[in-house]
Design a protein around this nucleic acid. Structure first.
Length: 857
DNA sequence: TATCTGGAACGAGTC
DNA sequence: ACGACTCGTTCCAGA
């Protein structure tokens, strides 16, 4: 391969370096944080959360957090949640970092920072006032590295024109000027140009052999019957058929849709968010990671198109690319020019002589973890999407909108909002693994239009993630039917070649629909809520073959076993096996046994939905004195396993722990089985989430939240899950003190370099403490989480339910640092096909060893 | 005709 | 080394 393979190492090296040494230049200019001050925050040296999640760059929003369940968080609210928010400004080692001032977003030449900061208008309106903001080019849809010139001589280049995805992606060749598409006539910021140039020549740098270590596209001659057998053959031929339902033409993702409510800001919101992202997310890795100046971009993720003019007040890090690639950066904003204009991003300087006015990101980046409810507000997915939705490739036509099990479409509603201002519901495709929820690298939301689509929407790019913006109108009771969202699959080869991308596409086919809404309150604060759907299996093959456990009616049993457990899910076969296992912290299997399956119990509830009854096997240790967490999975054969489901063995004679269902979702067609536990969703079976110790929060948290909604919250019902807590596994940071669940296995896995992600992994907000998880990731399990601190300033993990009442993200520049929230350790995915992951882990371990050596060298 | 869908072929990679 | 298997991606064809 190419240097891509070394990417993680590169990034991590920087990360480690910074965590080990002080940068005088930085510290001296640090806003006001001193080493000590930083250390006092719950993100100390060695804290994996900090290093991995807050390695980002300084500009971090000052965010206060409120809880919709005061009681549950009362004790925690004074410890520093805000610290988390501020933490991005912290150095990985918790030391001083770049200034972490309040950042004001100011439209270039338009909005004064005060306008934004002090506006009392609802977000939508407020943002609308920034209409004049020039918007980001959507040209950069695909991450630069993703579109590596190397990627494939195939269809890719030709696709660009036809595919909304391609055309929208950005090319961020951060540090590879030589291969930068920006220098290529093919990579014009403008879609059309790009098209033209591409068409012109196969000689485009994008196809440069030098930069193209691997032609991967099957089009590159794989198919004997493919068009001319040349790389672009098939794709080009099928270009017209390519996924470009958007009438606007993909090159301009943001191109609006005429049905968009006139009073709903169409672009500004996204533009600002994008800009914010550039600040808080994309840039995150820049400074702290010490990326060479030349390689730095102010908006790595969003690509050239997304930049926000801010008052950096300091010397700017001028990124040639930005300058050069956008000769006419400040075009007036209008939808037709959506791809033409852009917002300048604050140019960070490593040394500020003084605190300077800053543009503050007021909205969270896509990979920040947000709660689904806060105060009176509650964002709910009333109708969950089907568990399977075959995503379409760029080379295919759309495969339609994601549907609900009933045949309808997912429905999302915001409760507790009584204003008359329309809001914007954002939708993007997120991951469904056990890690923090974040935009999925291999899938993008795809806008569906047509007669059958009743919901208007428009696309915008936020970082490298396509976001669908859907109006939430008061007249519709703040309810939206999501019939306008499909899912686009990006070629693994494209994404994996992205600089810094370490996620693996293979078998990483589960996603979640992630909905967000930002509510501007009278106080000037913005409440950001997020709800993620149940996991959706997107591959044709997996959907047809992999067993999927959606429900289990029992989640615990005394160690003696013998109890019957009803499983509900998909692809259960007569010869399906159910295996229980326990893993050690290092991932090794401690115990595994096959449960007795009552074959005669196999019943097809619907075409694909089946139920199965198994007899819970006795635990290997009948004398346990405390609950023991194990997992089980359904196996249809070699490599055809469901994700892990968690199960708890209780000490004999111990009272049963009734686990609150954290997902009220009842799949259509499945009778109320009273299946409480929620499966561990995640690609290929992720690690189980360990239920936290039963605590007061468990019982009180969620209800409290709902109560606050008063009558606004409808009773939960099947199919209408008030728990958008599907963020579940992924939503919680893995920052718990190690040893929480010593008996729980925590295999390291997925070599996902959040730190080095080209998409800019933003420090996740440590909201609730929903602590379904409790084990600490094994050191080295993740490149970005080296040296997990065994102990931390974190509050004890709350409970699963507590998560439901997690405070929302409030953005308020005026609000002082806030409150601490219980933080939990998020477990690493446990199984992405364990064999496969085991291999990956080995590789990671090796890499880490190597990195470690380098960083200490 | 264009789009949506289900199915399956092809080929690279893995076992 | 080789064949079987797995899986991503593309193409076909019917609705």
């Amino acid at each position: 391969m190419t240097s891509d393979n070394e990417e993680p190492e590169f990034d991590f090296n920087f990360l480690f370096e910074y965590s080990q040494e002080e940068d005088p230049a930085r510290s001296k200019d640090a806003f006001s944080y001193s080493q000590n001050a930083s250390m006092s925050l719950p993100l100390g040296v060695g804290n994996p959360c900090l290093s991995s999640q807050f390695h980002g760059l300084a500009p971090s929003p000052v965010i206060s957090v409120s809880s919709c369940h005061q009681a549950a968080y009362g004790l925690l609210e004074d410890t520093g949640v805000s610290s988390y928010y501020l933490s991005p400004g912290l150095r990985p080692n918790g030391g001083p970092t770049l200034e972490s001032p309040r950042i004001e977003i100011t439209a270039y030449g338009q909005l004064a920072e005060d306008d934004v900061k002090e506006s009392r208008l609802p977000v939508s309106r407020q943002l609308s006032s920034a209409v004049m903001l020039t918007l980001p080019s959507t040209e950069g849809y695909r991450d630069p590295s993703g579109l590596s010139p190397a990627s494939s001589l195939s269809s890719r280049s030709c696709h660009s024109e036809a595919s909304s995805y391609e055309s929208g992606f950005s090319y961020n060749y951060d540090n590879s000027p030589a291969t930068s598409p920006w220098q290529s006539p093919c990579v014009s910021p403008k879609g059309p140009s790009s098209l033209a140039s591409c068409a012109l020549g196969g000689g485009s740098p994008r196809q440069s052999p030098a930069a193209s270590p691997r032609p991967t596209s099957p089009c590159g001659g794989k198919r004997k019957y493919s068009f001319s057998g040349s790389g672009g053959g098939a794709p080009c031929r099928r270009a017209s058929r390519s996924a470009t339902p958007s009438p606007q033409g993909s090159p301009c993702l943001g191109a609006g849709d005429d049905t968009w409510p006139p009073d709903t800001n169409r672009y500004t919101n996204s533009a600002i968010v994008a800009a914010i992202n550039a600040l808080s997310t994309d840039g995150a890795g820049d400074i702290s990671e010490g990326i060479p100046l030349k390689a730095r971009r102010t908006n790595q993720e969003s690509g050239p198109g997304m930049s926000l003019k801010v008052e950096s007040g300091g010397e700017e890090l001028i990124l040639g690319e930005t300058q050069e690639d956008y000769p006419s950066p400040r075009l007036p904003f209008k939808k037709e020019n959506y791809s033409g204009g852009f917002l300048d991003v604050p140019q960070y300087s490593y040394s500020w002589s003084k605190p300077k006015p800053f543009i503050s990101p007021s909205l969270p980046a896509l990979d920040w973890q947000l709660p689904s409810c806060s105060g009176p507000y509650n964002l709910q997915i009333e109708m969950q999407p089907k568990s399977h939705h075959r995503a379409h490739y760029e080379t295919e036509g759309s495969r339609g909108a994601v549907k609900a099990p009933s045949g309808g479409h997912p429905v999302v509603q915001l409760y507790g909002y009584m204003e008359n201002e329309p809001l914007t519901l954002q939708l993007f495709i997120g991951t469904a693994d056990d890690r923090l929820l974040r935009p999925h690298a291999f899938y993008q939301v795809h806008r569906i239009t047509g007669k059958t689509v009743s919901t208007s929407s428009h696309e915008v790019m936020q970082s490298n993630t396509k976001v669908l913006e859907i109006p939430l109108l008061p007249e519709n009771n703040m309810r939206a039917i999501i019939d306008c969202a499909g899912i686009l699959k990006l070629r693994n080869s494209d994404i994996e070649l992205r600089k810094g991308e370490t996620d693996i596409g293979r078998k990483n086919t589960r996603v979640r629909m992630v909905f967000r809404v930002h509510i501007e309150q009278a106080s000037g604060r913005t409440v950001s809520l997020q709800a993620a759907s149940n996991p959706i299996e997107c591959s044709q093959r997996s959907a047809q073959e992999l067993p999927l456990v959606e429900k289990q009616n029992v989640d615990s049993c005394v160690a003696t076993g013998g109890k019957k457990m009803l499983l509900s899910g998909h692809n259960f076969l007569p010869d399906s096996k159910v295996l229980f296992l326990e893993k050690a912290q290092d991932g090794h299997h401690i115990w595994e046994t096959e449960a007795k399956v009552e074959k005669e119990s196999l019943k097809a509830v619907s075409l694909t939905h089946t139920t199965l009854v198994v007899e819970i096997p006795p635990y290997h240790n009948q004398r346990i004195s405390s609950p023991s967490q194990v997992n089980f999975y359904v196996c249809n054969g070699k490599r055809k396993r469901s994700q892990y489901q968690r199960f708890t063995y209780l000490p004999p004679n111990a009272p049963m722990i009734k686990t609150e269902p954290n997902d009220d979702y009842e799949p259509q067609g499945v009778p109320a089985l009273g299946l409480p536990p929620r499966p561990y969703y995640g690609p290929q079976g992720l690690s189980p989430m360990i239920h936290a110790d039963p605590s007061p929060c468990l019982a009180g948290g969620y209800p409290a939240c709902q109560q606050r909604h008063g009558g606004a919250i409808p009773p939960s019902s099947p199919g209408s899950s008030p728990t958008l807590h599907d963020l579940t596994p992924a939503a919680y940071p893995r920052c718990l003190p190690a040893g929480r669940s010593p008996d729980h296995a925590v295999p390291a896995l997925l070599p996902v370099a959040q730190a080095g992600s080209p998409r800019g992994y933003t420090p996740p907000l440590l909201f609730s403490a929903g602590s379904p998880v409790s084990s600490a990731p094994s050191p080295g399990s993740h490149p970005s989480t080296p040296g997990l601190a065994p102990e931390g300033p974190f509050a004890p993990p709350a409970t699963t339910l507590a998560r439901k009442t997690s405070p929302a993200l409030l953005t308020d520049s005026a609000t002082p640092p806030a409150l601490p929230l219980p933080v939990t350790i998020k477990q690493e995915p446990q199984e992405l096909d364990q064999m496969y992951l085991d291999d990956v882990n080995e590789i990671i371990r090796n890499d880490l060893s190597s990195i470690s050596v380098h960083s200490h060298a």
